[in-house]
């Protein structure tokens, strides 16, 4: 294992503070892990939403994990471009969300040209993560965190979170 591989493995093991069933890598917010000429590890992370309150916690967790793996000097920078999209959540991340009772996002909307106004409740191919029924209803477009919508399953009657496509 090269030094860079070790750094990458350590960084990729850090979990998201708000979705702790996911690693930052599986969430797609870990954008780069590099070795600087002076031996420091340089890590880039990107916020999911502009107001993401967890950036400092992510930074602290990355620094702690990498120090624990023997890297004394760690520099974490913010990468704003390109903007995060739910399409970056890995297949393993989607499986982890579903296993934790959170419905993973569908494909993000395609960009290009003005965003079309949508006055109808969003139509998504959402299934209840508990009983897999497709008979679900949207309770609110905004859920427990900025990245989630709130749904209710009409079959098993349980509420659940859905990660919104962006």
């Amino acid at each position: 294992m090269t030094t860079l591989d070790r750094a990458r493995a350590a960084a990729e093991s850090v979990v998201d503070p708000e979705l702790p069933m996911l690693t930052l890598a599986d969430l797609g917010v870990l954008r780069a892990v590099e070795l600087a000429a002076d031996g420091a590890v340089r890590v880039a992370i990107t916020p999911t939403y502009s107001g993401c309150p967890a950036m400092a916690a992510m930074r602290d967790d990355l620094v702690r994990e990498l120090r624990g793996a023997g890297f004394a000097e760690v520099r974490v920078r913010i990468a704003l471009d390109p903007a995060w999209t739910t399409d970056w959540i890995t297949p393993r991340g989607r499986a982890a969300l579903a296993a934790a009772g959170i419905s993973p996002p569908g494909p993000a909307p395609r960009r290009g040209g003005p965003v079309v106004l949508d006055l109808l409740p969003p139509r998504r191919d959402v299934r209840c993560p508990r009983c897999e029924s497709a008979d679900v209803e949207l309770t609110s477009e905004f859920g427990s965190t900025a990245c989630k919508a709130l749904y209710r399953c009409r079959a098993c009657l349980e509420p659940f979170d859905h990660v919104k496509e962006i």
Binding site: Y49, L80, V115, L117, L119, E141, I166
Partner: peptide
């Protein structure tokens, strides 16, 4: 300006949710 461009590219995704929420 690369910073403004990135802030806007991110913000428009959020704003489209806000607009449609208010529109509904």
């Amino acid at each position: 300006d690369a910073v403004l461009s990135a802030v806007a590219a991110k913000g428009r995704k959020e704003l489209s949710y806000h607009r449609d929420f208010a529109g509904r």
